[in-house]
Amino acid sequence: MLDETQYEYAGFWIRVAAAVIDSILVMFIAIPLLMAVYGSDYWMSDRLIQGPADFLISYVLPAIAVIAFWIARGATPGKMLLSTQVVDAKTGLKPTPGQSIGRYFGYYVSTIPLGLGLLWVALDPKKQGWHDKLAGTVVIRRKQITQPVSFTRQS
């Protein structure tokens, strides 16, 4: 069971920051690979997908990596860096492989209608996007417990 005294739901902006970090990491890996396979002509083409290697490097491998991170660690590197994690909404445990796969493909559902399913995170009480609702997950982070300031007189 998710202990809401220890954790809070991660909001929209911290999740955006984690996604930006993850995207930059993927670019650092994908761009050199794409350049090695296709050369600089890759950037001049009008085609959306240049070939099988492009599809594999740009779509398949990132999907496998994200899903594997969710299964193994409950978080991608960006989420780990920002101390957030994806958990099962009912148990608070790491998502199952089925939830992780469903959550990944749920991103497409969340994105297609003008990104409304992603923006939903800002409006939802549990900060769930549509992909979270579809997969039965939430993104949490440990609450920052602040100590009250005590003022003492010094002699």
Score class of each variant (00 low, 15 high):
residue 91 T to E: 11
residue 41 D to T: 12
residue 124 D to V: 01
residue 56 L to T: 14
residue 128 Q to P: 10
residue 146 T to C: 06
residue 98 G to P: 01
residue 75 A to Y: 00
residue 74 G to L: 10
residue 111 T to K: 00
residue 151 F to I: 14
residue 71 I to L: 11
residue 47 R to S: 12
residue 30 A to Y: 09
residue 78 G to P: 00
residue 141 R to Q: 11
residue 145 I to Y: 10
residue 90 K to F: 06
residue 11 G to V: 01
residue 128 Q to A: 01
residue 98 G to E: 05
residue 139 V to S: 10
residue 24 I to N: 05
residue 54 D to H: 15
residue 4 E to M: 15
residue 62 P to F: 07
residue 71 I to T: 14
residue 94 K to I: 03
residue 126 K to G: 06
residue 6 Q to T: 14
residue 94 K to T: 08
residue 39 G to T: 07
residue 119 L to K: 06
residue 67 I to A: 05
residue 128 Q to Y: 04
residue 135 A to T: 13
residue 143 K to G: 06
residue 133 K to H: 11
residue 12 F to V: 08
residue 119 L to Y: 11
residue 54 D to M: 09
residue 73 R to I: 03
residue 115 G to V: 12
residue 108 Y to Q: 05
residue 17 A to K: 01
residue 82 L to R: 05
residue 70 W to N: 07
residue 11 G to K: 08
residue 104 Y to Q: 04
residue 30 A to E: 07
residue 45 S to R: 02
residue 39 G to F: 02
residue 124 D to H: 15
residue 107 Y to M: 10
residue 112 I to T: 09
residue 24 I to E: 13
residue 124 D to C: 13
residue 36 A to L: 12
residue 5 T to N: 15
residue 87 V to D: 03
residue 6 Q to E: 11
residue 138 V to K: 00
residue 147 Q to C: 05
residue 114 L to E: 09
residue 25 L to C: 12
residue 4 E to N: 15
residue 46 D to R: 14
residue 99 Q to P: 08
residue 139 V to T: 09
residue 6 Q to W: 08
residue 142 R to E: 15
residue 131 H to M: 08
residue 122 A to K: 05
residue 18 A to N: 04
residue 8 E to G: 11
residue 19 A to K: 04
residue 35 M to P: 03
residue 66 V to R: 05
residue 21 I to G: 09
residue 127 K to T: 08
residue 93 L to S: 15
residue 141 R to P: 02
residue 76 T to V: 01
residue 88 D to W: 03
residue 97 P to T: 05
residue 15 R to T: 07
residue 66 V to L: 14
residue 94 K to V: 07
residue 56 L to H: 13
residue 33 L to R: 03
residue 86 V to T: 11
residue 16 V to W: 10
residue 59 Y to I: 09
residue 4 E to H: 13
residue 152 T to G: 13
residue 86 V to H: 00
residue 20 V to Q: 01
residue 5 T to I: 00
residue 43 W to M: 14
residue 67 I to M: 06
residue 94 K to Y: 11
residue 58 S to F: 09
residue 69 F to V: 05
residue 47 R to D: 14
residue 30 A to M: 07
residue 155 S to V: 10
residue 102 G to Q: 07
residue 54 D to W: 12
residue 23 S to D: 09
residue 145 I to F: 14
residue 20 V to H: 06
residue 132 D to I: 03
residue 91 T to V: 06
residue 95 P to R: 11
residue 155 S to T: 12
residue 118 L to D: 02
residue 69 F to K: 08
residue 5 T to R: 15
residue 137 T to V: 01
residue 137 T to A: 00
residue 153 R to V: 06
residue 48 L to D: 15
residue 19 A to T: 10
residue 8 E to S: 05
residue 92 G to W: 04
residue 20 V to A: 13
